[in-house]
């Protein structure tokens, strides 16, 4: 039972990061590596606000999420958009993104130090027993928040005109452009939403197991594996991918030891790349042109 609980908890943060990453990947069509540092920015912003300004967590967390969203949006406005204007290829965007990642991770490292920082609520709370598994309140909250956000995203994509425009741009960017959709505006909101999701995920992870400047790398890699395993562009696929990946990780750390978590994730990735490159439920991404 504890194993199942661990799988669900791990899957829910992978899901949040993966959702944002996949969203940006689908709409803008490049590998947004710096998504990892957006993830890290959430908890560090919350840390700064609580320790330096003395704000209570309940206030500093929402502000930190806004800061993460603004950070992602700034990357788009200051770097990616000018690059796209120049007609840069997705590879150039990836390199730029990698550059941003390294730059910002090191900035965080210099500003806060490489040691572990904590925003854990300092009253050590008792684990709650749920169906025979011990879960901390933070973990329970993590699962609840990611289910809630997932539902909110589904409603956003299905019901709002912005959500539909986002799907239209992902489906056929050229036709969306011809139909009068301002793709820059859509891309901007994609970054805002995706980055907010990453910031929230980062905060949830930090409240559970503390933060280090390089925490984003691992989170991003797990999210990418889940996205590829699930099939790019499929929401049910992503959920399945996140669950499968965290199941593989938790099972291997349960039976083989926790040092097996990461190798296992990449083993899963390799198996999928070799035998089912389009993922569980994914469709082949087509190249649209006119």
């Amino acid at each position: 039972m504890q194993l199942v609980a661990n799988i669900i908890i791990a899957a829910s943060t992978i899901l949040l990061v993966g959702l944002g990453f996949a969203l940006i990947y689908r709409v803008v069509r490049f590998f947004h590596f710096a998504h990892g540092v957006v993830f890290t920015s959430g908890p560090y912003a919350a840390f700064l606000l609580t320790t330096r300004l003395g704000l209570p967590l309940a206030i500093s967390i929402p502000i930190a999420v806004v800061i993460s969203a603004a950070l992602g949006a700034t990357m788009e406005l200051a770097v990616y958009r000018p690059l796209r204007r120049k007609g840069s290829s997705p590879l150039v965007l990836l390199m730029a993104s990698l550059g941003i990642y390294v730059l910002l991770q090191n900035t965080i490292s210099l500003a806060f130090g490489d040691d572990t920082k904590s925003i854990r609520p300092n009253t050590i709370s008792e684990g709650i027993r749920v169906f025979g598994a011990v879960i901390t309140p933070v973990q329970l909250l993590t699962v609840a928040i990611s289910i809630g956000l997932l539902a909110a995203m589904i409603v956003f994509f299905r019901q709002s005109i912005m959500g539909k425009a986002l799907r239209a741009v992902a489906n056929d960017p050229v036709l969306a452009n011809i139909s009068g959709i301002d793709s820059d505006r859509v891309i901007f909101w994609t970054f805002v939403i995706g980055s907010a999701l990453a910031g929230i995920a980062g905060i949830m992870v930090a409240m559970d197991v503390d933060m280090t400047p390089n925490m984003g790398m691992n989170a991003l890699m797990m999210a990418v594996v889940a996205v590829i395993v699930g099939g790019v562009g499929s929401m049910p696929g992503l959920i399945l991918g996140a669950v499968l990946l965290s199941a593989a990780q938790q099972l291997s750390s349960w039976f083989l030891g926790s040092q097996w978590q990461e190798p296992m994730a990449f083993a899963v990735l390799l198996v999928f790349l070799l035998f089912r490159p389009q993922g569980f439920l994914g469709k082949r991404v087509k190249n649209a042109s006119i």
């Binding site: 539909k164 799907r167 239209a168 969306a176």
Partner: peptide, 26 residues
């Protein structure tokens, strides 16, 4: 001015209703 490009281009992953909504995005 609206334009329907060559090759019966619709948003194939969107529903018929959503295609029409995108047409009236603004």
């Amino acid at each position: 001015i609206t334009f329907a490009p060559q090759g019966s281009r619709v948003f194939d992953e969107l529903s018929v209703a959503e295609n029409l909504e995108i047409g009236g995005f603004h």
